[in-house]
Measured scan of single mutants.
Amino acid sequence: IINNLKLIREKKKISQSELAALLEVSRQTINGIEKNKYNPSLQLALKIAYYLNTPLEDIFQW
C-alpha cells in the first residue's frame, strides 16, 4: 500500500492529534498508519478521506 496520509495531512495543516480527534482514534493509530505499521479498515480509510476532503485513492493506493 502506498500511503500519502502524512503528506496530505501536513499540506492541510492538520496535526496527528487533530485528525485523531476527528476520527475518534488515538494519535498513535494515525502515527501507525503514516508509518505503514498499521493498515486502516475500509471504514477508517473512508473517514480519513472524508475529513481531509481528499479522494481515497489519492491517500491510499493499493
Rank of each mutant, 00 (worst) to 15 (best):
P40I: 10
E18C: 08
K13W: 06
S41P: 11
L56V: 13
Q16M: 09
I48D: 00
N39P: 14
N53I: 05
Y38L: 12
S26L: 04
E34S: 00
S26I: 02
N53P: 00
T29I: 15
I30V: 11
Y51M: 10
G32W: 14
Q16P: 05
T29G: 03
I59P: 01
T29H: 10
I59R: 00
T54L: 05
E10W: 06
A21E: 13
I8G: 02
I33R: 01
S26A: 06
D58F: 09
K47Q: 10
K13H: 12
L19I: 04
P55F: 04
L56M: 12
N53C: 10
Q43F: 10
A49P: 01
Q28N: 11
S17F: 12
Q28P: 07
L22Y: 15
Q61Y: 14
K47T: 05
P40K: 01
A21S: 10
N31S: 13
E10Q: 07
W62N: 07
L23N: 02
S26V: 03
I33W: 09
L23V: 15
I1A: 08
I8H: 07
D58K: 09
A21Y: 10
L5D: 02
I8F: 09
E34C: 03
E24W: 07
K11W: 07
I30A: 01
K37Y: 15
L5C: 04
N4K: 09
Q61R: 09
N31T: 08
D58E: 14
L46P: 00
K13G: 15
N53F: 05
A49L: 02
Y38N: 07
L46M: 15
L7V: 15
N36Q: 11
I33S: 01
L44I: 08
I48W: 03
F60Y: 04
Y50N: 06
I2E: 10
F60C: 04
N36R: 09
R27G: 08
G32V: 09
A49N: 01
V25K: 02
Y50Q: 08
E57T: 12
E18V: 11
L5R: 00
I48H: 00
K37G: 07
I8N: 03
K11R: 14
K12F: 05
I59A: 01
Y38I: 14
L7E: 15
Y38S: 07
L52S: 02
Q28E: 15
W62Q: 10
K35A: 15
S41R: 07
K11V: 08
L22E: 07
N31H: 13
A45Q: 10
I30M: 05
V25C: 06
S17V: 12
I2T: 14
N39S: 15
L7I: 15
I14K: 05
A21R: 14
L42W: 10
K12V: 09
I33V: 06
L7N: 14
N3A: 04
L42H: 08
I30K: 00
N4I: 06
I48R: 00
S26H: 08
A45L: 05
K35G: 10
N53G: 12
W62I: 12
R9Q: 03
L52P: 00
L42P: 07
P40V: 11
Q16W: 03
A21Q: 10
S26C: 05
L5F: 01
L44D: 04
L7A: 15
A49V: 04
L7S: 15
Q61V: 10
L56I: 13
K13T: 06
A21P: 01
Y38P: 03
Q28A: 13
S17C: 11
L23S: 06
P40F: 05
L7T: 14
Y50G: 06
I2M: 11
K35C: 11
G32P: 01
K47I: 06
K12H: 08
L42D: 05
P40H: 04
I2D: 08
L23A: 12
T29E: 11
K13N: 14
Q61W: 11
N3Y: 01
T54N: 03
Q28C: 11
K47V: 04
K12Y: 04
L46N: 08
I59T: 01
E34G: 05
S15H: 05
N36V: 04
L46A: 07
E57C: 11
E34A: 06
N4V: 04
R9G: 01
Q61S: 13
T29W: 10
T29D: 06
R9F: 04
N36W: 07
I33C: 03
Q43K: 13
Y38V: 14
K37D: 11
A45S: 06
S41K: 06
P40W: 04
T54M: 08
L7M: 13
Y51Q: 07
K11E: 12
N53A: 11
Q43Y: 10
Q43H: 13
Q28M: 11
I2H: 13
L22F: 14
L7D: 13
N36C: 10
D58G: 04
L56T: 04
Y50S: 07
L56Q: 02
I14Y: 07
K11P: 02
R27F: 10
L5M: 13
L44S: 02
F60P: 02
P40A: 06
I59H: 03
Y38A: 08
Y50A: 09
S41Q: 05
N4L: 05
E18R: 12
I14C: 06
F60G: 00
L19E: 00
I59E: 01
K12E: 07
A49C: 06
L46V: 09
T29N: 04
S15K: 10
L56H: 03
R9H: 01
L44W: 03
F60L: 03
L23K: 00
L42I: 11
N31Q: 12
I33K: 02
K37S: 11
N36S: 12
N31M: 14
N39F: 15
I1G: 09
K37E: 14
K37A: 10
L46K: 11
E24V: 07
A49Y: 01
N39V: 15
K6P: 04
Q43M: 12
K47C: 09
N36D: 09
E18H: 12
L42R: 08
N3C: 07
L5I: 09
Y50F: 14
K11A: 14
P40G: 04
Y51K: 06
N4A: 05
I14F: 09
Y51P: 00
L5H: 01
P55M: 07
R27P: 15
P55W: 04
I2V: 13
I14G: 01
Y38R: 09
K35F: 06
Q16G: 04
L46Q: 12
A21F: 10
A20H: 03
W62Y: 09
E24D: 13
N39K: 14
Q16K: 07
A45K: 10
T29C: 15
L19T: 00
N31E: 15
N3S: 05
I33D: 02
L23Y: 01
L44E: 04
E57S: 12
L19H: 02
Q28V: 12
K37V: 14
Q61T: 09
L19A: 01
E10Y: 04
W62G: 11
L46G: 05
L19Q: 00
E24R: 12
G32Q: 15
I2Q: 12
T54W: 05
L22P: 01
L46E: 08
D58V: 11
K37L: 15
S41E: 06
I1H: 12
K12T: 07
I30E: 03
I48P: 00
Y51D: 01
G32R: 14
K47N: 06
L56R: 02
Y50H: 13
Q61M: 09
I1Q: 09
I33A: 02
A45V: 05
G32K: 14
K37W: 15
A45E: 02
Q16T: 07
L44T: 05
Q43N: 11
Q61K: 11
Y50L: 11
I1M: 14
K35R: 13
I8S: 04
L42G: 05
E34W: 03
I33Y: 06
K11C: 09
I59Y: 02
E24F: 10
P40R: 01
E57K: 11
R27Y: 12
N3W: 02
A20T: 01
K47M: 12
Q28L: 11
I59N: 01
I48L: 08
V25W: 02
I30G: 00
L42M: 12
E10D: 09
P40N: 01
K12N: 11
L23G: 03
L56Y: 07
K6C: 07
L56S: 03
L42S: 05
W62S: 10
T54A: 08
S17E: 13
E34R: 02
N4H: 12
V25D: 02
L52I: 03
R27H: 10
S17G: 13
L23I: 11
P55V: 05
L42Q: 06
N3F: 03
T54S: 08
E57Y: 10
I2W: 13
T54G: 01
L52R: 00
K35S: 14
I8Y: 09
L22D: 10
S41Y: 04
L52C: 03
L23Q: 01
D58P: 00
I59L: 11
K12L: 08
Q43G: 12
Y51N: 05
Y51V: 15
A45M: 15
I2S: 12
